[in-house]
């Protein structure tokens, strides 16, 4: 099996930079463009995300997650931080008209991440309201408050759905960590 690109980067292999950009440049760029409406802001976020990736390459553990998922995680963090720092809304269109995420017919990113495919399956097993909250939050880029205002779901319930839904997905992916608590189902 070929050595992970991130391990090569951590080892100082400059050729791995090109390989990383070829393999995951589109992924990071897509995440930024999805969550940020301003092109210039998105490009800045992508540039900063890759600095994070270079710095964190040595942390990558292939037994925990695929390279794509690890990189997507770093990219999301950077993009979300960027959005918060510039104080701009993620989507430019009216929240009221938010509809579910568009589908893809080529599933490019699902094919490069085992976890993405499993997450998609896990998502379908969640309660509809959990699906809705996670979808609007993670893919639609809406804050919990915005979701509450848009859907009419009380803010506390939105938070509960987000937590329980994410815990379920995490469990399905085998990502139980040091805070692996048993979610308690209760009528909401």
């Amino acid at each position: 099996m070929a050595e992970p690109i991130l391990k090569r980067i951590a080892a100082g292999d400059k050729n791995a930079v090109e390989d990383c950009l070829n393999a995951y440049g589109g992924l990071v760029y897509s995440i930024a463009r999805k969550l940020m409406s301003n092109e210039a802001d998105a490009e800045d976020a992508v540039q900063e995300a890759f600095i994070d990736i270079w710095k964190n390459a040595g942390r990558y553990d292939a037994t925990v997650a695929s390279e794509a998922t690890f990189i997507a995680m770093i990219a999301r963090r950077r993009v979300i931080d960027k959005i918060r720092s510039i104080g701009r809304r993620i989507a430019t269109d009216p929240i009221e008209e938010m509809v579910s995420e568009p589908g893809s017919t080529d599933h490019k990113f699902i094919q490069i991440s085992v976890e993405a495919k499993e997450a998609a399956e896990a998502m379908k097993t969640l309660r509809p309201e959990q699906q809705k909250v996670l979808h609007l939050s993670i893919v639609g880029g809406m804050s919990h408050q915005e979701i509450a205002e848009t859907t009419g779901i009380p803010l506390g319930t939105v938070k509960t759905h987000a937590r329980r839904g994410l815990l379920r997905v995490r469990e399905a992916l085998g990502l139980g960590g040091v805070t692996d608590f048993e979610p308690q189902e209760a009528a909401i």
Binding site: L21, G25, G26, L27, V28, Y29, S30, I31, R33, K34, E43, V46, Q47, V64, A65, A68, T69, F70, A72, M73, A75, R76, R77, E101, P102, G103, S104, D106, K108, F109, I110, S113, E115, A116, K117, E118, A119, A120, M123, L134, H135, I138, V139, L166, V169, R170, L173, L175, G176, G177, V178, T179, D180
Partner: peptide
């Protein structure tokens, strides 16, 4: 330091993410 929540969210996002255009040359 638990990354598992972020990893799960990243996986969920990738599952529904529509590929954007390729990384622009100047940004690359």
């Amino acid at each position: 330091d638990d990354d598992s929540f972020d990893l799960a969210a990243a996986a969920l996002m990738m599952a529904e993410l529509e590929p954007a255009d390729a990384l622009p040359a100047h940004l690359r």
